[in-house]
Design a protein around this nucleic acid. Sequence first.
DNA 1: TATTTTTATGCAATCGTTTGCGGGAACGTT
DNA 2: AACGTTCCCGCAAACGATTGCATAAAAATA
Lengths: 342, 342
Amino acid sequence: MKKEVVTLKKLAQILDLSTSTISRALNDHPDISEVTIKKVKHLAQSMNYVPNIFAKGFRKHKTNIIGVVVPNITHYFTTTIVRGILEEAAIKGYRVIISESNNDVIKQTEMLNTMIQFGVDGILASLTKMTRDVDSVLQTLNTSPLILFDKVSSKIPCTQITINDEEAAYSAIEHLINIGKKRIAIIKEREFSYNSEKRYAGYLRALKDHNIDVDKKIIISVDDISLQQGKRMANHLLSMKKKPDAIFAITDSAAVGVIKTLKKFNIKIPDEMAVVGYSNSRLSTVIEPNLTTVNQPGETIGKNAVKYLIEEIESNADTITNKMIEIKGTLIIRDSTFKSLK
Amino acid sequence: MKKEVVTLKKLAQILDLSTSTISRALNDHPDISEVTIKKVKHLAQSMNYVPNIFAKGFRKHKTNIIGVVVPNITHYFTTTIVRGILEEAAIKGYRVIISESNNDVIKQTEMLNTMIQFGVDGILASLTKMTRDVDSVLQTLNTSPLILFDKVSSKIPCTQITINDEEAAYSAIEHLINIGKKRIAIIKEREFSYNSEKRYAGYLRALKDHNIDVDKKIIISVDDISLQQGKRMANHLLSMKKKPDAIFAITDSAAVGVIKTLKKFNIKIPDEMAVVGYSNSRLSTVIEPNLTTVNQPGETIGKNAVKYLIEEIESNADTITNKMIEIKGTLIIRDSTFKSLK
DNA sequence: TATTTTTATGCAATCGTTTGCGGGAACGTT
DNA sequence: AACGTTCCCGCAAACGATTGCATAAAAATA
């Protein structure tokens, strides 16, 4: 069952050279003659030689593994990021180990530690919602290259990759204003959430730029931003005397909940009430009317995250870099805000 | 930045023992006295000793990593399986590296090889659609413990974990018959697909058991089973003289496509046409009417896959085991087949 | 030709852990 | 007293790749 394993020693025996020469030849060491290099590489190839990762990692303290921690692996957006990570990592010759924190800070800390103990070369993390106490993250940042993506935190001085949430939200709100909406509600997260706050900021700025007063009554904060909450908050908004004429939910699923409720009450979308979501998840083209939303290029985020991480790993500078990378999300206009004439 | 690393040798020096004694003490070797074991473990704990994975893996040829290969990481069902895998693996002290084959057989082969080269202890795989040529898979089976899940193949003699597709489909069709449907169409995959064939078999058996003739005209096979194809095939079915009164799409997304088309033509669901999907994906409760579908407990599949794999790894028997494990999927009845009185 | 320089290669130690084997000390058995 | 057991523990080799240093052979120079 076990394949006969090819090692440097075996190659050395066959070619009647020393293992050191073989090793150097395979690594294009200048000391080795061209002829030998060719010969060795050829034999290695034909015998399907594969360096033993563990001997190598053991010796060089490098594993070519990067660790990824995400709060919830079942989120579509997250999986598109993961796809980008896997793709780029494969190209660069890195393997990826993944963990899911389930939005549990304790678990997240554990996972970061485990990964470091395990010897990953660097870590890519998207933080849990409630990562208030960033100590553990800071600590891992001290021991290993670390890059945050999507759910990041301004408290951590490392490279971070996000969607340009503020601008994207701004353009979403501007779009609503352009189609004539004047009283725009927002459903956002109550817990401190980097993304939610950014989108909220975009919302505020857009209103301000267009001289629309902010009405706190229609700024709704919820604990968990879900389809159910979307339904509930739509109900709440509909019960108001001065109803909004548009709702911006900072998540597609919440927006879907909103639409479901609106339909239950036979509210015309988008005429009486327009709805905008965020993520361009699969739901957005299944719900009717199709949802206007912000597309987030997950793969691009993933690829960039890997690129910057490997850069840090291979520079092996002892200094901590902290670039802020913003990937452009774009508004996709669909029927929930704009009835096309089809 | 680098932490001072604690090794066996260091512990040995401090306690004035040999590294072998330390090693054995930490591994509860019977040769070592209780007192020593306590002493060593205590010191190790307090000095935060972590065994060097690479030295260990190097020495023992064991990595405590399992490799996972899936066709498409963005499928919701797949992510629920992955979640189960991660959870169980973490409990058992294994790390998980993931690859995505993108339904590309060449890539799949490459990935299987890479994982083996890399030294994973075992592999969990869900095969690409067109894995006709199973040679490469058989070859990895020869070199490493391997378990297939979800998209499996009867040509590969290893343990396989699936949903009880046949039965689940049977119960779906039986349900349609029970609500009075007599002419039930099926939209399945053309390419050889284990799951599709199983579900089709369940379809046939249910019809037979209820003395309904099979009409090949309403047995539709498509290349890729997608939302678009669902729409197209629904159009096709609607264009027939003898229209069906129910459609079983072996995928939720196809079923959603079907519903969308039916709604376009104002066909009453479920009265004129009932629709059943498969997967219980998020779409199924977003589309209206809500879709009757088969729930597949992904996490259970993932956990079981890991369990059986680790069993094989740790038994390190040279024999190849091949159990067939079926996890029960259950029919979830919603509005697309049964109008509740609410 | 003798010497130095260059080129190409080998020797041997090293990384941290595990493990077969060997052995001393203490105890029990005749 | 002589021998056999049992209990603990250490020595040293091994795993596969890398690398500083040494060195033989070839080339260049004096």
